[in-house]
Design a protein around this nucleic acid. Structure first.
Lengths: 209, 209
DNA sequence: CGCGGCATCGGGTGAACACCTGATATTGAA
DNA sequence: TTCAATATCAGGTGTTCACCCGATGCCGCG
């Protein structure tokens, strides 16, 4: 089976390791490797790969943001997100958002290769550690996809206007989602919105840069 | 030159990649790989390696803790700490503590190999990205008492006007401190101010309500 | 004494925000 | 079919922010 892959990973050493590991999969072609979230969206739009392997923590846009945006342009692409560490809330969000594969980077090379194979074959897979985290997590977020996308954009310092340009919607729509998020989190200023979201595990300061 | 190495890295995939990469260094022997900080201390005590390669984020004890404890038993061992992401404050702490090498995981395989060589050769090395973080962090935590007070008030959701009432000063003064804090942290919106401050360890989301 | 750092405060501006009102279209479930 | 949830978008308002310019007074250090 042909497998065309895009890899998005800002740690060059890990990216090189992934390319090397994936070379053992027959019929697999790595179309492009990129090092930040914005480039990942572009590459996925351009190549419409079979599988996109995304690191969660990347500059410009994190793995979930890339997934939410890129799938609108490449609906057939299946996504595997790898992460070194992540809060359970974010893990739950990604599963709920429909990411096809999620695993922590504590997996071996063989486990990662297996994950790529499963995702390519149309199955949804969650790595063992990720599953354990999910099992022990109680909370579920009630932000919609778009609300979350707007929250992430705000957290990256975007004004409503530039968030609108980034997401391809009207500033009034950003305004609407922003207001909705604030109402849901009980925040009345941007500052308290941000800290409440961090506390709720909706934002990871280290993955937003 | 003989190089005996212990590797401590909880991400199995990365650990395997390191072993593979280091195999290209002539005369280098990987004595043991461990996956958490406590085991790292034990292995270093047992083997007294020439070089210990430590991941910063590990269960049990982080890279700095391992360094501080293990060097008491293996004073000849030289330490290279690798990290995926880290706050500048912690980076500064490790440099100050005397870790022989620090680099972010955005380096390529070649850069990591070079780092191991330099550390083994007795030199202290700081990776390019780590150095940039240290350079840009040198002034970021230099907030005055009043600036910090204003930052805290903002984080609690106060507008400039209500922060002024809280601190017994004019809103213009709040404005001045606020602008100064933003300049020092390089932020251009309230959102990025908050997250930058959290990342810099200036704000603790859990203690602000 | 001179100077820099800090705290304080004022004038001002245009952009941005927080929230009010309203609307249409799509989707999935009952 | 109906309805609720979601996404999208518009009109609007007063407040707030981010930054521009300027200033004085106090303190500690060289």
């Amino acid at each position: 089976m042909q497998t065309r892959v895009v890899i998005a990973e800002d740690h060059l050493f890990v990216s090189q390791g992934l390319v090397s590991a994936l070379s053992s999969i027959e019929g697999l072609t790595v179309l492009q490797t990129v090092a930040n979230g914005i480039e990942a969206i572009s590459a996925i739009r351009k190549h419409r790969p079979d599988v996109a392997i995304l690191d969660y923590n990347m500059p410009g846009a994190n793995g979930l943001e890339v997934f939410l945006e890129a799938r609108r342009w490449a609906p057939e692409t299946r996504f595997l997100v790898l992460t070194g560490s992540m809060q359970a809330e974010m893990l739950a969000q990604m599963v709920e958002a429909g990411v096809h594969g999620v695993m922590l980077k504590d997996g071996s090379e063989a486990e990662i290769i297996n994950a790529v194979r499963q995702v390519r074959a149309g199955r949804t897979m969650i790595g063992a550690s990720a599953q354990r985290m999910l099992d022990s997590a109680s909370g579920t977020t009630d932000l919609t996809d778009r609300e979350l996308a707007v929250l992430q954009a705000i957290a990256r310092g975007h004004s409503n206007i530039s968030a609108a340009a980034l997401l391809g919607i009207s500033p009034k729509t950003v305004d609407t989602h922003r207001t909705s998020v604030m109402r849901k989190l009980g925040a009345h200023s941007t500052a308290s919105l941000l800290l409440t979201a961090v506390r709720a595990g909706l934002l990871d300061p280290d993955s937003l840069r």
